[in-house]
């Protein structure tokens, strides 16, 4: 019986090694930028969701300036437009496929916005790379937002009460008390999301970003060999993802100093 993997086919890949090297760089850069953009979006979204902005608050006040307890007006007065927008964003981005989002960003948004068509490092097409980063960043922003929000909410309310009773402002409370503790709690979830981003970045080959998957595709088109380049890609992705989760596990251990007796 013929094996579906042929060693001789691996030698056919050798002339295309440079494509894989470039693909690794593109995937790594894509993931790094995605994480950076995603994290910034997520932080803003999470704070919006947890904010207490109530522009219609005056509708829910009694004559002497106290909050009404119930009724339609009291409900309306609690409406928070920032939280509403952030929630809508998160739910829409989480409830639609990434590939649809990538296409809408690439064929829709960036067909209106003209990007300069230069090449990073001489081979990365910026006008494809950039839309890919934006689309992936927006998508992971929605997921990271929920992670950050759950992290903030996982901190006991007594911490905030103690901080505020000492006179710390809302922002100081978040910065010195809540975030450091929340970050520790959500590191495993963030590590997971980082790994997901590295893998999900493969989808951008559909808009012509030259990542690892696009190298696989190029080899397939030129040599009609498919399984072997896929195995190479598998190995590369594993070598990227596995150390990433290990690295974050290391930081997790370092940050749990306060837990040790």
């Amino acid at each position: 019986m013929d094996s579906f993997i042929k060693l001789s086919n691996f030698s056919k890949i050798v002339p295309y090694v440079q494509l894989f090297e470039q693909g690794v760089l593109v995937t790594v850069l894509l993931s790094l930028f995605t994480v950076a953009i995603g994290f910034c979006i997520a932080l803003v979204l999470a704070l919006m969701r947890l904010s207490n902005v109530r522009p219609l608050r005056f509708l829910g006040l009694t004559k002497d300036g106290h909050q009404k307890e119930s009724g339609v007006l009291a409900a309306v007065s609690r409406f928070n437009p920032l939280a509403f927008l952030a929630t809508a964003y998160v739910e829409i981005l989480r409830s639609t496929p990434v590939i649809v989002q990538v296409f809408i960003i690439y064929y829709g948004v960036f067909s209106i916005i003209d990007l300069p068509s230069f090449r990073l490092f001489g081979f990365i097409k910026f006008d494809r790379f950039f839309p890919g980063v934006v689309a992936l960043g927006m998508n992971s922003g929605a997921y990271l937002c929920e992670i950050i929000r759950s992290g903030i909410q996982s901190i006991d309310g007594g911490q905030t009460e103690a901080a505020r009773s000492l006179g710390l402002s809302q922002v100081q409370n978040l910065r010195y008390i809540i975030f450091p503790q929340a970050l520790k709690n959500i590191l495993p979830a963030i590590a997971n999301e980082f790994v997901v981003i590295i893998k999900e970045s493969a989808i951008t080959y559909t808009i012509g970003v030259q990542d690892i998957m696009s190298a696989v595709n190029a080899v397939k088109g030129a040599t009609f060999v498919i399984i072997e380049p896929l195995l190479v890609a598998t190995a590369i992705y594993f070598c990227l993802c596995f150390p990433t989760s290990k690295l974050i596990a290391y930081f997790e251990r370092r940050m749990s100093r306060g837990d040790k007796r």
Binding site: G158, E161, R164, S165, L166
Partner: peptide
Amino acid sequence: DELRQKMGMVFQHFNLFP
């Protein structure tokens, strides 16, 4: 915030920052 500085509070569950 200014007001709360003038009132120290001690809680049942200590609420030290761990």
